[in-house]
Simulated scan of single mutants.
Amino acid sequence: MIDVAALRALRSVAALGTLARAAEELGFTASAVSQQIKRLERQVGVPVLAPAGRGVVLTPAGQAIVDSAAEVFQALERCAEAAQSVSAGTPRGVLRVVAFSTAIRGLLAPVIPRLAAHCPDLRLHITEQDPDQALHSVDAATADLALVHDADGLPVPLPLSLTQRHVHTDVGDVVMSRTHPLARLDRPLTGTDLAGHAWVTSPPGSVCHQWFRRLFADAAEEPDVHHLVDDFATQLALVAAGDVLALIPRLARPPLGDGLVSRPLRRRPKREINAAWRRSANASPAIQAVLTALAD
């Protein structure tokens, strides 16, 4: 009979291309993953991997095994969910959650006390991951639930083995000092209002930088960017220290304090946030408990 751990190791190697990267994902050493693959080859009687440069590729037999692996893991997961449903569907054990940093701060952290009160036998193990990596982790069963956001209005491609649910819409506001001229405006800000002011913004390549660039898409002049900073708390410190503005998602925004204010934009930048999990785990009491807490 095929060893499940060895099957999971082969699936991870197939997805990541090297024994070292698979070992990192699975929490083993590369030697341990290699031994699992060799055990699988003894069990099936044929090679499943072949060297390719610095990495490895699947043999036809290895590809056939990986193609069938999803059904195996889904069946095992359904067995576990059936057992939990017999015990009155009580959320218990460890639920491995992967999410981007602002979702951890703004969505997950606030519901942990509520979950602890209503589900004392359930513990969340949270790891920060970008959306693409988070979906891969859930698909590979190294995580159970992911919180992901769309990429500048485009949804992250969802593996066929996963399903998802919308949990939140995050929007961005402009933050400024209370003494800034724009702080006196008691209305949503326009592109004309923002012209000519200095900024601190997230580095290129981030969703928030794309939001920022879109604010000035129709402007005649380039925006006056004084600072490029990834950390939002540091952005706020620079806003408080100088005469710069910052565009910050509400989920990412710590308390502003007395010296800062936020103003909404007439054309609000936004991102949709979804929870994603394996279809075979749809009946999981732990996943459903977290989804309910996020909805509340």
Rank of each mutant, 00 (worst) to 15 (best):
F73Y: 15
A75N: 14
L76I: 10
E77I: 08
E77A: 14
R78Y: 08
C79G: 11
E81Q: 15
Q84Y: 12
S87G: 14
A88W: 10
G89R: 13
T90H: 11
P91D: 11
R92C: 10
G93A: 09
V94T: 15
V94C: 09
A103E: 00
A103Q: 01
A103G: 03
A103V: 03
I104M: 00
I104P: 08
I104F: 04
G106L: 01
L107M: 05
L108M: 05
L108Q: 05
A109C: 04
V111D: 05
I112Y: 00
P113Q: 06
L115Q: 01
H118L: 13
C119F: 08
P120S: 01
P120D: 07
D121K: 12
L122S: 12
R123N: 09
R123F: 05
L124A: 01
H125M: 15
H125P: 05
I126N: 01
D130C: 00
Q133C: 06
A134M: 07
A134K: 04
A134N: 01
S137K: 02
S137W: 11
V138D: 09
V138L: 08
V138F: 10
D139S: 15
D139Q: 03
D144R: 05
L145C: 11
L145T: 02
L145A: 09
A146D: 13
A146V: 14
L147I: 03
D150T: 03
L154Q: 08
P155L: 08
V156T: 06
P157T: 10
P159N: 01
P159Y: 06
P159M: 02
P159A: 06
